[in-house]
Simulated scan of single mutants.
Amino acid sequence: MGLRRVEQIMGTAISLEIAGTVPDDEAARLADEVYAWMRLVDDTFSTYKENSEVSRLHAGQLTASGAGEDLRHVLAVCADLWAETDGYFDVYATGRLDPSGYVKGWAVQVASDRLMAAGATDHSLNAGGDVRVHGHAPTGGPWRIGVRHPWDPAAVCFVLAGSDLGIATSGTYERGQHVIDPRGGGAASGLRSVTVTGPDLGRADAFATAAVAMGAAGLDWLATLPDGYESAVVTDDGRFFRSEGLPEHAG
């Protein structure tokens, strides 16, 4: 038994694997629900779709109070994250409303929580590097997740392992220097790749984005993350740093 499926949503490959004892027909139904949710999130939060709630809010065609529950929730959390990151996680850093640095991780976290509630306790969901794993892999051991090497797309930089873990990676290697330093106003530099692990993938996603925006100062800031969150960094000049509790695979 088990299910593996990949679909293209949000401009990236979203892969789902459900292991364990979930019957095939139930696994297929749950997968349909996961991908329907991810498409709904894309339709709501995309900055590329003119009719998304985010685009309509930015254009003044929608008020925050008139937005749907999901958008109101995301805006409230992002406001808290702005304060928590000393303003470096800023959904207006690009000059327009763009909560993407939180939304993808949050959406994956919600989908994973729903799979858990439905009894699919052994699963892995990966949306373009935002990963949530729970339970056991088909091998019976923990899930193993390779984090892409920031200079070689065919290689991994390191491998993480866990049975209840969110993993978010932000960097400049795939889409160029797209993360903006909200204080300087220009493209952030100094950190080529930041990976944050922790119990809540949305927050991990935002923390990784904020650290990239900080540049070199992000190294010290990552050491102050809340309990349960760990980090790994590759700098622009090729140095590697990791926190002591990073759940690396030892094999």
Rank of each mutant, 00 (worst) to 15 (best):
Y88G: 04
F89P: 02
F89D: 02
F89Q: 00
V91R: 00
V91Q: 04
Y92H: 10
Y92M: 13
A93M: 04
T94D: 12
G95R: 09
G95P: 02
G95C: 05
R96M: 11
R96C: 11
L97M: 06
L97W: 13
D98I: 05
P99W: 09
G101H: 06
Y102H: 05
G105A: 02
A107G: 12
V110S: 12
A111T: 01
S112T: 07
S112A: 10
D113W: 00
D113Q: 12
M116R: 13
A117V: 07
G119V: 07
G119P: 13
A120L: 08
T121G: 11
D122K: 00
S124G: 12
S124F: 10
N126Q: 03
N126M: 00
G128S: 03
G128T: 11
G128C: 07
G129A: 06
G129K: 04
G129E: 01
G129D: 03
D130R: 06
V131E: 00
V131N: 00
V131F: 03
R132D: 03
R132L: 03
R132Y: 03
V133L: 06
H134T: 14
H136M: 15
H136W: 14
T139P: 12
G140N: 02
G140D: 02
W143M: 01
R144L: 13
V147I: 15
H149S: 00
W151S: 11
D152H: 13
A154L: 14
A154I: 09
A155N: 10
A155V: 06
A155P: 05
V156A: 14
V156D: 15
C157E: 08
F158Y: 12
F158Q: 10
V159D: 06
A161D: 12
G162I: 04
A168F: 05
A168C: 05
S170E: 00
S170F: 02
S170P: 04
S170C: 05
T172A: 12
Y173V: 09
E174N: 11
E174I: 11
R175T: 07
R175M: 08
R175N: 10
Q177C: 12
H178G: 06
H178W: 01
H178L: 11
